[in-house]
Design a protein around this nucleic acid. Structure first.
Lengths: 227, 227, 227, 227
DNA sequence: TATGAATGAGGCTTCATTCAT
DNA sequence: AATGAATGAAGCCTCATTCAT
């Protein structure tokens, strides 16, 4: 019995080590991808940064792409978590908490957010990892849904303009996307008060589309919105 | 006399053909870059799409990167042109014309805008074309300046919130950036009323940061803005 | 304990194999370079002559030039070794041993010597391998120094003409250089008694610039020259 | 009659221009080949240095190799001329005049001599220009013959050691060859008194293999050697 | 089980030569 | 007759993936 138990222990131990190493690989990849040009990150470098052999990497991931898509998945899931917290707060009375959570989670590590966008670029037509990419899409859609739900509520409360709810959520997404690029984009000049700027943008994100603004806009509004 | 003239004509003719071929190469490259994954676009494919030999490409461009950066430059210059028009309109009384011009020129061909962003990613540390990339940066800064100028005026007129003018122009940039990504991003679901959505975002872009909105935002505003 | 030892053994074993393969590449390159026009020797051919894949070559050498400069280094070092032996003999009383060693080591494999000269031609402005080329120069200078030292001694002993010592060592170098070209140069006609000819030249090399002279030369002169 | 004459004149005129341009091409090629790495000299550069179009080059030479071998031929012929002069002087009583002429003509422009050697390297197995290379060999053999003739005479006069005459002529060739390399070889250290050194070597060349020796050498020896 | 040497497809670039104008 | 744009073969090098130890 004991022998069996210790054998099971050993297996569990091994699994733990195995998973720890997997995390190590992902972490190493992440650091490299953020610190240098994506195209320069090779499997060799990842392995060596993780302190293991190149062959070992392939015991954990079938292809290089699987490492990359894994980073994408991890990131989207972290947003999901943050969004769920926002939903909780929203239930407690602050209906803006969801979009705030969304903005904050994406702007918390702009470089990571940006990296995930870049990765998607390279991976869109990768034939391995098709299923993982579908999963990424699924998660993203769930984020949209969460935003949509809250926005629909805010429209019902008369706070937001009465346009299709996804107009708001997508605008929200767009601004967040742009803010991320802005954050680290060096060609826009060196911005020193980045924190304040990001706060400004977040506030725009949270309030944009509020009633009383949109109808002041120019002649580009869709007909359906005119009274 | 005639002989001379016809000789000059012939030279001019040749130059025209030469430049036309150059345009052909850029066009071929552009089409390929937009229609398939950037990494899959090779010089060979560009040449064959342009209907010429691989070696011919190198009569027009020193390296592959020069083709790519050329696309970037052409694009930024087209925005400059559109922005100059906006400035003219602004002088005739519509102070929002500049940011509208900016949004419209970037959203006119979102795929191209996005492509240029992707290209920058790959080229950012290319050692050839350093000077061309500097030129791209220069042009972009001139766009910012144009926006800043108008925004400063709008702040003076009491229309926009009195925050540093680049807060507005950068937010503007960020939203445009995000809108571009939004436009073609397939994983966000297939949006059918894209036109209307883009109009909505443009209107947000033109009015965002208007007085009376920002101070309603949450607790993220910089201290200097509080009364 | 045993496990450890065998593990260390295995590593050592692997290193040995690795180095052996490196030698194999150099050997393959050398054979090709000597047997056909240098410009016709490609990395592909080297790999296939070494019985390995093209990519494998790049596990051992960063660039093709590194293979070539390696051949140069190996050669210069072999001369160093031979020269050191000559110095030992010189200490035992034969002051001509050094220049003899120099001539003999360069004339031992004239084709290799000549190859190294050709390689230098092509590599002289190669930007990779700058440091290795510097090392080649360093070694060569040490050869000169060794010759100079002995020559200075011979001048002091009144055996050689009293001109700056490098006149002698460089003449020595020049004759060796020329002899090498001579050895295999097909356009000079097919010389059959090459051995004797080389002996004649070596004797000239050893005695040239003597105050007294040629008939005093060592035992390398062809029989017909002896009285 | 006059018309005919002027037509013939025109043709002659054209031929003159044509030949002048041919010389221009060869000159341009020569300058480039001497001033930069041989492998970097392209037909384009030659044409542009000669101030004509690339296509025009091919009106004069069937292939690039023909330009190169032409340089070789021109050089060997210039040596022939100088050697013929030496023979004249020899007839007037100075039997060393031939080898002196040989040494001097080769050391007059060491870079050119060296260039011709390098060219031969690259061209040995060029399938076009086989006949021209044969001609180069033929000329060289005639140089050897000239030297041999004189050497045989010197042996007969009891001045040179009685070894096969080509021992002497080839040694002579070898030393000249080496001296050429020496002249411009930078890795041997910067020699400042090159002129004196070349004089020293020439004197060795002229006297080497003498039964008596070096102190009998002609007027080329550096002053320090004279009593 | 972990390793890293080996592999080779595929990318970019050069340049001698051709040929239509 | 002169031109130079066009061509494409051929070379070097990278790196994801495999597999024997």
């Amino acid at each position: 019995m004991q022998a069996k138990a210790s054998s099971a222990d050993r297996i569990r131990e091994k699994k733990k080590i195995f998973l720890a190493r997997e995390a190590k690989i992902v972490k190493a990849a992440l650091e490299l991808l953020i610190s240098e040009n994506i195209d320069r990150v090779t499997v060799s470098k990842i392995a060596s940064k993780a302190g293991i052999g190149k062959g070992t990497v392939y015991k954990h991931f079938l292809t290089k792409n699987e490492i990359l898509v894994r980073i994408m998945l991890d990131y989207e899931q972290s947003i999901s978590t943050r969004l769920a917290e926002g939903l909780e707060e929203a239930k407690k009375g602050d209906p803006g908490a969801v979009s705030k959570a969304y903005f904050e989670s994406r702007l918390a590590r702009p470089q990571l957010d940006r990296l995930v966008q870049k990765l998607e670029d390279r991976l869109v037509d990768a034939e391995d990892i098709e299923s993982q990419l579908a999963e990424v899409s699924r998660i993203r859609r769930s984020h949209e849904d969460a935003l949509d739900t809250m926005i629909t509520k805010l429209i019902g409360d008369g706070i937001l303009e009465d346009v299709p709810s996804h107009y708001h959520s997508l605008s929200c997404w767009a601004l967040a996307q742009g803010a991320v690029e802005l954050y680290f984009n060096r060609t826009l000049g060196d911005i020193e008060d980045t924190e304040a700027l990001m706060g400004f943008i977040t506030s725009i994100g949270v309030t944009m589309g509020n009633r009383g603004q949109y109808h002041q806009a120019g002649d580009k509004q869709p007909k359906s919105l005119k009274k």
